[in-house]
């Protein structure tokens, strides 16, 4: 029941984040969705995810506010407003229809399938790795390839950010060096 309340709160906050005019209010409403998600993780018995989501959301909020604090939102309403909205809504309705069909194949909420993997991880996890926290055992021992890929993705994104946000291009630095000498 409390999960439903949290989900409805998340939906209202998401609508607010999409529809509000001011950019700063939009970003803060998005952070409200993230903090409600953190509470939902706690209810769903995932404390690792709750801690990580909380701190990641804080850092994300700081970065977004620094990026948007002095940018205005020009309010322009041009033609084809009706056409764009209607085509988007039709696309979303088709998406919802097919996902409703697919949802009948999913297991009932509260009774997960994948019993074999789950039993193996829960029963053998402590004996095989010695770690009590089974989530930690899974990400760093059983599925460490995933974590290696995650490290590679984070590394690539940092390289991309430093390439996008550098102050001078390589040519300008070269020209300055030759001029200085």
């Amino acid at each position: 029941m409390e999960l439903h309340i949290l989900l409805i709160f998340m939906i209202f906050a998401a609508i607010l984040a999409i529809e509000v005019k001011d950019l700063l209010s939009s970003v803060i409403a998005m952070a409200a969705v993230g903090f409600a998600l953190c509470l939902a993780f706690l209810i769903l018995k995932a404390p690792d995810l709750a801690i990580t989501q909380l701190v990641v959301e804080l850092l994300c909020l700081i970065i977004l506010i620094k990026a948007t604090i002095k940018k205005d939102l020009p309010l322009v309403i041009e033609g084809r407003w009706l056409f764009n909205t209607v085509s988007t809504l039709v696309f979303i309705i088709v998406f919802l229809f097919f996902s409703y069909i697919a949802m009948k194949e999913l297991p009932v909420f509260g009774n997960p399938t994948m019993g074999l993997v789950r039993r193996y991880l829960l029963e053998e996890g402590v004996n095989k790795t010695g770690a009590v926290n089974i989530v930690s055992a899974v990400i760093l021992d059983f599925r460490a390839y995933d974590t290696l890929g995650e490290v590679a993705v984070l590394f690539t994104s940092i390289i991309g950010i430093m390439a996008i946000l550098r102050r001078k291009g390589r040519k300008e630095i070269l020209e300055e060096d030759t001029n200085g000498k």
Partner: peptide, 8 residues
């Protein structure tokens, strides 16, 4: 226990 694999 809940399933640890999706959490990881």
């Amino acid at each position: 226990m809940v399933d640890p694999l999706p959490q990881a």
